[in-house]
């Protein structure tokens, strides 16, 4: 007797068991009724200037007043000398693409976007920035090509973020 037949019997008796069968492996699975929706609340209080910067079309980093270490992503304290005396500095937004990829198999929470390209650009200041690349055709991208950062609106959520724009030679 196959599992399927057995289950039909079980179902008849109990009417609504949340059991499904993995046909390929002939295995019963209890499909949990307890679904959890997770959404994090992340503090950006100490780096809120960064987001104001985006609205001013600026890409901002922080720099340690004590040891001059530059931070992107920006942070409110210096990991190196442990000072929290930091100042905001504007980045050049110009550099060279170091590497890139295109995401075809997307996470659930990104499934509403078309396949997207991601790259890392090394800015003139010697700091790397990871972001989406405006060019979606990987054949048009090359390691070492010039690029710049542009502040853009992410749709459909409609929020400010930054993107890498490759520059053809």
């Amino acid at each position: 007797m196959s599992n399927e037949t057995t289950l039909t019997v079980v179902e008849k008796k109990r009417k609504s068991l949340p059991i499904i069968i993995d046909q390929k492996r002939n295995a019963y699975l209890w499909e949990s009724n307890r679904e959890l929706k997770l959404k994090y609340m992340l503090s950006v209080e100490k780096i809120k200037r960064f987001f104001e910067g985006l609205a001013e079309n600026k890409l901002l980093a922080t720099k340690c007043e004590k040891c001059n270490e530059l931070y992107f992503p920006p942070q409110s304290f210096c990991s190196k000398c442990l000072s929290n005396n930091m100042k905001w500095v504007e980045l050049s937004k110009e550099g060279e693409i170091v590497t890139f990829t295109k995401i075809y198999v997307k996470p659930t929470s990104f499934s509403h976007y078309a396949d997207y390209t991601i790259g890392i650009i090394r800015l003139k200041e010697g700091i790397n920035v990871l972001a989406w690349i405006s060019e979606k055709n990987v054949n048009k991208l090359k390691v070492g090509m010039k690029g710049r950062i542009e502040i853009v609106n992410r749709e459909p959520e409609n929020y400010l973020t930054y993107e890498i724009i490759p520059i053809e030679n």
């Binding site: 170091v98 890139f100 990829t101 995401i103 996470p107 991601i118 890392i120």
Partner: peptide, 18 residues
């Protein structure tokens, strides 16, 4: 992740491309 939706293969793909 939050802004750029990297995936595990995506991280290693960045190494593969380079």
């Amino acid at each position: 992740f939050e802004n750029f939706g990297l995936t595990f293969p995506g991280y290693y793909a960045l190494y593969a491309t380079a």
